[in-house]
């Protein structure tokens, strides 16, 4: 049985079709990257898959059971979601923000030392332990991202949805976040990650899902999806294809800086 199945998924808001006919199955241990230009429907897809929005067409099944038959708490015990929002209403410390991931587990029992051990471990995984005692609002964007990632890890999900987790991160931490996704998948998690960086997706994901104007343009292994002609059709920009030393595809946009006329 697949961990997550989407069939003919569509969403219409205020008469505008935001997403249409998206379907795929995600197995445990798999990393699926969702790609596409701005406004292609990536975040909408994530909101449908996480149960936040009800689809206008089609359906989502989690562990063989329709998503709408899950309660909010049941869902929180199975899947965690990292949104793009980084805003905390009160001066919580970074540690306390990460500990919020334990909340679904504390619905029916009091917190114990194990919950804190879990939180600490999650913070260690994202290299956020050194600044855990500091107030979350005082952290840099990249540090906040790592604390938020630790929070969704502390939730101990079977399925992880990440909406642009590499935003605000320097190249090293981008790679480390993606490597962490791989390790988590190795431990049996399913990971759906929205990315803008085609090459990062190509390097670390098992499969890519390319969206364009709310439709699924391609779904498959990186080498099948990252084709220059397809990328040009989607992004409106010519691309060239090369090979990463790992053997994975490596694409680059063929854009050039305009030569600046020198005054005088």
């Amino acid at each position: 049985m697949s961990l997550l199945v989407a069939e003919g998924l569509g969403y219409t808001a205020a008469g505008r079709v935001l997403l249409e006919g998206v379907g795929f199955a995600l197995e445990a241990g798999e990393v699926l990257a969702v790609l596409g230009p701005n406004g292609a429907g990536k975040t909408t897809l994530l909101r449908l898959l996480s149960g936040e929005l009800r689809p206008s067409q089609g359906r989502v099944e989690l562990l063989g059971r329709p998503l709408e038959r899950y309660g909010a708490l049941e869902l929180a015990l199975l899947r965690a979601v990292l949104t793009q929002r980084r805003e905390v209403g009160f001066p919580f410390s970074a540690y306390e923000v990460a500990f919020l991931g334990r909340l679904p587990h504390l619905e029916r029992r009091a917190e114990g030392p194990l919950d804190h051990a879990q939180t600490e471990q999650a913070l260690a995984h994202t290299q956020a332990l050194p600044f855990a005692p500091r107030p979350y609002p005082s952290l840099s964007g990249g540090e906040q991202s790592r604390v938020d990632l630790a929070r969704v890890l502390a939730q101990e999900p079977k399925l992880l949805f990440l909406d642009e987790p590499t935003n605000h991160l320097d190249p090293r931490h981008q790679v480390e976040v993606m490597a962490l996704c791989r390790r988590l998948a190795g431990g049996g998690l399913g990971v759906v990650v929205v990315l803008h960086d085609l090459n990062l997706a190509g390097l670390f994901a098992d499969r890519l899902l390319l969206l364009h104007e709310g439709r699924m343009v391609a779904l498959g292994r990186p080498a099948e999806v990252l084709r220059p002609e397809r990328l040009e059709a989607v992004y409106g920009l010519p691309f060239a294809l090369a090979q990463h030393p790992s053997g994975r595809p490596w694409v680059m946009p063929l854009a050039q800086a305009e030569p600046t006329p020198v005054a005088g």
């Binding site: 936040e52 708490l73 869902l75 929180a76 979601v81 949104t83 929002r85 991931g101």
Partner: peptide
């Protein structure tokens, strides 16, 4: 949204 993801109805 995050509260819903953490299991709040």
């Amino acid at each position: 949204r995050e509260a819903f993801h953490l299991g709040v109805n």
